[in-house]
Design a protein around this nucleic acid. Structure first.
Lengths: 352, 352
DNA sequence: CCTCCATGTGGAACCGTTTGCGTAAACAAT
DNA sequence: ATTGTTTACGCAAACGGTTCCACATGGAGG
């Protein structure tokens, strides 16, 4: 049997209400009483029961985050851990706890979220928006539960969301390659159903157009967010009569596939082909050679998502705060796009 | 205002107790009443308030897992996500929720855990045991809260724990190299403060001894669980008058460093040096060449940890169940240790 | 016909907090 | 001396459930 507020009250010779008021030290309690109660609390090892507190306060001081389905596991592992770290750090700083949930399929996800939100176990949810259509989003909207999307959705334009400016990110990355003298730049995209693929493609296209560089359909291939897609894209590009001299790749993992393919065929990066990709997950730095990548601030995405959500649950009703949060990106240049002077080889990249 | 058990009771023309009994369908409620109540619940969209339930039942149906400090972030990202996935999946299957917590330092970790466990927000904790000394472990033990360790600890031998047989794992990996004909096998270890380094070193040593292969101190170098350590170890080994022909590496990330170093110096893997490492995180498969690695079943570690913890909190007092769970490992052989026939190069590995 | 037991349900206490309202005491102002 | 105001605290209801106990009903057994 653990020690309750009543035990403290009794031992201190006051009422439970007084102890409660000491706990939330905003009320008018005399210095002496307050100190005495605090001493007793320490002595007895009192810890307020969070469940009881949230029963009456009608707030749980916790949020949940929905893990995507196992199918997307591989792609998401590094990404998601970083995101969670950001979320948990921010949430804890605001005195909130974070609950992780998942479901084997969309239906299970909805059930899990329903149990958590409707059952008043959490105050709000963070979810990764991936597909164009999402039953979880629909559910949360219909029951108007507070939630925030990581990513953006054309279907739900004015939801609370945290995202990058992927168009600009792709523009910047492409511009980087153009500045290096490249004119024939290919783009390895993801599935067109993902908005992020489309945004990055758009940024790429704009940058090419702005520099009056020609593009053909051959310069653009679509795939999944998987290594194999990169491998296939690579062999497609390298078999072209006019090969590109640089590639913009939608995700680091895909880049890894490109890299492996090139390695197998005996091509060198960046000498034979330059590479820039997106997301800057750990493997970008760790691969051989390290991959230039647009850092999208995953931790920051999580941190900001948590912040936005908690703000919206604590100030429910007030509608004046920002809906869309754009996290800044930053191009991290590594060996895959720039010839490294530490290696004593002939730089042939400019002879294109 | 959400719908409560009383609303359901009133509308159904029964008492709250009856509704409660319908919810936990074990009591003696007539078929018709039960059905009627269920219908009303659906109609009203009733969801039991989890907080209220756990206030009286004194069980929260949730556990927490403590993230290690940011310092270990890099090493842990992929590992931890996989672990969490295992934990969450199992927990959800058992009707439990999982709460993620972290702290900037050990003191903060203790405070977080104290708040969660003493505040009765969670029923138990899962934690990664890393160092030889751990305030969190001490805290949990002293307040005898249910918890399970992922990893093993020589200081606390008979705690509830989930772990691999790292000695055997290293033995198997070494034996694999020996079977391939290697005689000069080096070992790149982690920090000796980590029990996992010591265990794997022991397995390596035993295997070498069992095959009557000579070892010198030069064959064993210690480092961190970082890429740089691998890089340094590589240059140490390659400068030796008598180089090893194969390396056993304590972690995939370290292997990546070795690989990069070899690549820079123009050496080929596995032709010039064979590599086997541990953990089999995603990068092992994705690197060039793919790294042979001992899969330690990270998901399974998490899954089992959750299972063990939940079992121990639901059957508290009963002391008869298993304390130490050993998760099986499995050597995954890839190109880094075996010459791949798909590549048309001369196999020089056996000419050692 | 009376008792007994099984079955189905209601009443009320309780879980550990918070909080609105009430009040006693002390002091200031009239 | 009476009234008003402030300060410090207690009482009790509420939050939304669960569960022990009581009670009514209806057959079965004697």
């Amino acid at each position: 049997m653990s020690v309750t507020i009543k035990d403290v009250a009794k031992k201190a010779g006051v009422s439970p209400s007084t102890v409660s008021r000491v706990l939330s030290n905003n009320s008018r309690i005399s210095k002496e009483t307050s100190q005495k109660v605090r001493d007793i609390m320490d002595e007895l090892g009192y810890h307020p029961n969070i469940m009881a507190k949230s029963l009456v306060s009608k707030t749980t001081q916790s949020i949940c985050v929905i893990l995507p389905k196992p199918a997307e596991e591989l792609f998401m592992n590094m990404f998601f851990m970083e995101l969670i770290r950001g979320i948990v750090t921010q949430a804890n700083r605001s005195g909130y706890d974070v609950l992780i949930s998942s479901g084997a399929n969309e239906q299970e996800e909805v059930e899990a979220v329903s149990r958590l939100l409707n059952g008043k176990r959490v105050d709000g949810a963070i979810l990764l928006y991936s597909r164009k259509d999402d039953k979880v989003v629909d559910f949360l909207q219909n029951n108007n539960h507070p939630f925030v999307l990581v990513g953006r959705s054309p279907k739900y334009p004015d939801l609370l969301s945290v995202d990058n400016d992927n168009v600009q990110a792709a523009y910047d990355a492409t511009q980087h390659l153009i500045n290096l003298g490249h004119q024939r730049i290919g783009f390895v995209s993801g599935p067109p159903s993902h908005i992020v693929s489309r945004d990055r493609l758009e940024g790429y296209t704009r940058a090419m157009e702005d520099s009056n560089l020609s593009m053909s359909k051959d310069w653009i291939v679509e795939g999944e967010f998987l290594q194999e897609s990169g491998y296939r894209a690579m062999s497609f590009f390298m078999n072209l009569p006019e090969r590109p001299t640089a590639l913009l790749v939608v995700d680091d993992l895909v880049s890894l596939g490109v890299l492996r393919g090139l390695h197998e065929l005996g091509y060198k990066v960046p000498q034979d082909l330059c590479l820039v990709s997106f997301n800057n997950i750990a493997i970008a730095e760790l691969s051989t050679p390290p991959i230039s990548s647009v850092d999208i601030g995953i931790y920051n995405l999580g941190y900001t998502a948590s912040q936005a959500l908690i703000q919206s649950v604590t100030h429910v009703g007030e509608n004046q705060f920002q809906k869309r949060h754009i996290i800044p990106h930053r191009l991290v240049i590594r060996e895959s796009s720039i010839f490294s002077p530490t290696k004593s080889e002939v730089n042939t990249r400019m002879n294109i």
